[in-house]
Amino acid sequence: MSVTIDKLAQGYGKTVVIDRLTLTLQPGITALLGPNGAGKTTLLRTLATILPPRFGTIRIDGIEVDGERGARRARDRIGYLPQDFGVDPQMTVSDFVEYAAWLRGVRSGQRWRSVGEAIDMVDLADQRRTKMRKLSGGMRRRAGIAWAIVGRPRLILLDEPTVGLDPRQRLQFRKIITSLGDAVVVLSTHLIDDVEAICDRVVVLHGGVAKFDGTVQGMSALGPDDLPGHSALERAYMHLLPESERRL
């Protein structure tokens, strides 16, 4: 399984959000870092086949996403959790996750087991019959993670997945994600400690281009001691920003 992004350009109207980006994603956990407006969510939406590429090509598991036909073929390989996701408030947790499995093309004979596995992984087994409208914010976020991982998709796209989770739940999330090592996982986050704890690779986006693409250790080595930050990785992130954005 691999995802190839070649000279991808994306935007809205005359605004360029992603500018000729080229990346190859392999199994493992890749973090997307960057300030608000850097193009992280736009990239995830494009990889999720919600937005067609404005220019360039995307191949997901060998399938070129060059139109609706290619997008449909790729979608059963993709699990996507947006930062803000809508739900039918009358659905139970089980119904919600089962709907995701159905959309992803999980076979009916395997669907119930896959749904149960995903719900167990996010520690919501005792809430499986609870309606979504009755869940707390953290529980709703965990149900969203179950939505993204049910059926073990080959490409998992997570946009700020730990927002609203308490420290214990964040640790549990890290355990879940590290168990999906055979998938390509792309994690957009602002939380540097999550990146340090579980990610294999970091891509820093700014102005629609990749300012850094490499290992967590390689990025940490870029962090001068005189920049703000509580860790070498935080200081490296500040180092990669334009000087005008480094001031706190």
Rank of each mutant, 00 (worst) to 15 (best):
Met1Tyr: 07
Thr4Ile: 15
Asp6Trp: 11
Ala9Gln: 14
Gln10Ala: 12
Gln10Lys: 00
Thr15His: 05
Ile18His: 02
Asp19His: 03
Asp19Ile: 04
Thr22Arg: 01
Thr22Asp: 04
Leu23Lys: 08
Thr24Arg: 13
Gln26Pro: 07
Gly28Val: 09
Gly28Ser: 11
Gly28Pro: 08
Leu32Tyr: 02
Gly34Thr: 03
Gly39Ile: 00
Leu44Pro: 08
Leu44Thr: 10
Arg45Gln: 14
Leu47Trp: 01
Thr49Phe: 03
Ile50Met: 13
Pro52Lys: 06
Phe55Gly: 14
Ile58Pro: 00
Arg59Phe: 11
Gly67Lys: 12
Gly67Leu: 15
Arg69Phe: 10
Gly70Asn: 02
Arg72Glu: 12
Arg75Asp: 08
Arg77Ile: 00
Ile78Met: 09
Pro82Thr: 01
Gln83Pro: 05
Gln83Asn: 01
Phe85Val: 01
Gly86Thr: 10
Val93Asp: 02
Ser94Val: 14
Asp95Gly: 01
Phe96Cys: 14
Phe96His: 15
Val97Tyr: 09
Tyr99His: 12
Arg104Thr: 04
Ser108Tyr: 10
Arg113Gly: 07
Ser114Ala: 13
Gly116Pro: 04
Gly116Cys: 08
Glu117Val: 11
Met121Tyr: 15
Met121Leu: 12
Val122Cys: 10
Leu124Cys: 08
Ala125Gly: 15
Asp126His: 15
Lys134Gly: 11
Lys134Ile: 00
Leu135Asn: 05
Ser136Asn: 03
Gly138Ile: 08
Arg142Asp: 06
Ile145Gly: 00
Trp147Met: 05
Gly151Ala: 08
Arg152Cys: 13
Pro153Tyr: 08
Ile156Lys: 05
Ile156Tyr: 05
Leu157Ala: 03
Leu158Met: 09
Glu160Ser: 08
Thr162Trp: 06
Leu165Gln: 08
Arg168Ala: 13
Gln169Ala: 07
Arg170Lys: 11
Arg174Ile: 12
Ile176Val: 13
Ile176Gln: 12
Ser179Val: 10
Asp182His: 14
Asp182Asn: 14
Leu187Val: 01
Ser188Cys: 12
His190Glu: 02
His190Ile: 11
Leu191Gln: 11
Leu191Pro: 02
Asp194Ser: 03
Asp194Tyr: 01
Glu196His: 04
Ala197Ile: 07
Ala197Asn: 05
Ile198Trp: 06
Ile198Ser: 06
Val202Leu: 02
Val202Arg: 05
Leu205Gln: 00
Gly207Ala: 06
Lys211Ala: 02
Asp213His: 03
Gly214Ala: 06
Thr215Ile: 14
Thr215Asp: 08
Ser220Tyr: 07
Ser220Asp: 03
Leu222Arg: 13
Ser231Phe: 12
Arg235Leu: 13
Ala236Lys: 03
Tyr237His: 09
Met238Gln: 09
Met238Lys: 11
Leu240Thr: 04
Leu241Lys: 06
Glu243Gln: 15
Ser244Asn: 10
Glu245Gly: 09
